[in-house]
């Protein structure tokens, strides 16, 4: 059984979703890569932002 920490699960999920979102939404390879990276950065910002927010809430 594969056991991963929450952080690695989130990063893997973000990575796979970003690849697909970049692939299906843009027209050129350059745009696809840029959009995929943008999506991944947004996922990470949300992940760490919400993570820190919850930590501050719980003390």
């Amino acid at each position: 059984m594969l056991r991963l920490d929450h952080i690695w699960v989130s990063i893997l999920l973000a990575l796979l979703a970003s690849v697909m979102l970049g692939l299906v939404t843009k027209r050129t390879d350059r745009e696809r890569v840029r959009y995929g990276l943008y999506c991944f950065a947004c996922f990470m910002a949300a992940l760490f932002g919400i993570g820190w927010f919850m930590k501050l809430l719980h003390g």
Binding site: M1, L2, R3, L4, H6, V9, L12, L13
Partner: peptide, 9 residues
């Protein structure tokens, strides 16, 4: 929680 994550994947 591992199985729950797996289900989501």
């Amino acid at each position: 929680h591992t199985a729950d994550y797996g289900s989501k994947f």
